[in-house]
């Protein structure tokens, strides 16, 4: 599903974000991306949905070399990749259901599809009763569920989660991880960058550790360390 071959990324001022990374993530895998701040986790994620381009190396997503994608095709790549963030990135002026529907509207899904898929996904994330609430009326955990619903409503092949539990308390984080696990079980590949030792150690999924842009460890059923 995802393949990186000798990928390097250097920012201005010779700041090395990733150095010669090679790894492969299979369809339906759940992978934790761990490492200290500045180790290259976010750059890794941003390269996958082509928010940035590598200086060297090749990245394949769903069998395609995304470096060769022309600009107008990038949105189509992103429709196959859901993204979740630590700060949720919800639109404050829209209700829960409008936030989720927004993801379908902007890619031109017909109204009847939106009206069936949005309630279904809100049911999946347990927010059916809060469909008409605004984000500010929700707890952090609920807001992250909305964000997950928005990322998953289009049934993407891949879900990228950049520290999705970073702003949540441990109990709420567990709920979010259970939800991501459920989504992963539907066949969606999940790549999650995290600092949360407890979650990584509990779930025992594959762990890719980055350190100063280098691939320090790639361990099946790994722990945080």
């Amino acid at each position: 599903m995802i393949k990186l071959e000798n990928v390097s990324k250097v920012y201005k001022g010779d700041v090395v974000a990733l150095r010669n990374i090679t790894c492969e993530i299979q369809k339906g895998e759940f992978v934790f991306l761990v490492g200290p701040s500045g180790s290259g986790k976010s750059t890794f994620m941003r390269l996958l949905n082509k928010e940035e381009s590598p200086d060297n190396g090749v990245i394949y997503v769903a069998g395609k070399d995304i470096g060769r994608l022309s600009g107008w095709r990038v949105p189509f790549l992103r429709r196959n990749i859901g993204c979740i963030f630590q700060d949720f990135k919800l639109l404050d002026n829209r209700t829960v259901s409008q936030n989720v529907a927004f993801a379908l509207e902007v890619i031109g899904r017909p109204r009847h599809v939106i009206s069936t898929q949005v309630p279904a996904i809100l049911e999946l994330v347990g927010l059916s009763k809060k469909a008409d609430n605004y984000p500010e009326e929700l707890s952090g955990g609920e807001q992250q569920r909305v964000s997950i619903a928005r990322a998953f409503v289009n049934r993407p092949l891949i879900l990228l989660a950049d520290e999705p539990t970073g702003n949540l308390d441990p109990a709420t984080s567990v709920g979010i991880m259970k939800l991501l696990d459920r989504i992963n079980k539907t066949g969606t590949t999940v790549v999650m960058a995290t600092h949360d030792r407890g979650i990584v150690d509990t779930m025992r999924k594959r762990v890719i550790e980055l350190d100063s842009g280098n691939l320090a460890r790639d361990q099946a059923r790994g722990v945080y360390e």
Binding site: W72, K89, L91, V106
Partner: peptide, 14 residues
């Protein structure tokens, strides 16, 4: 900017 960012992320065309 937030709307634009979300639009980009979910794959809205340019």
């Amino acid at each position: 900017r937030r709307e634009v960012e979300v639009m980009r992320l979910v794959g809205a065309s340019n």
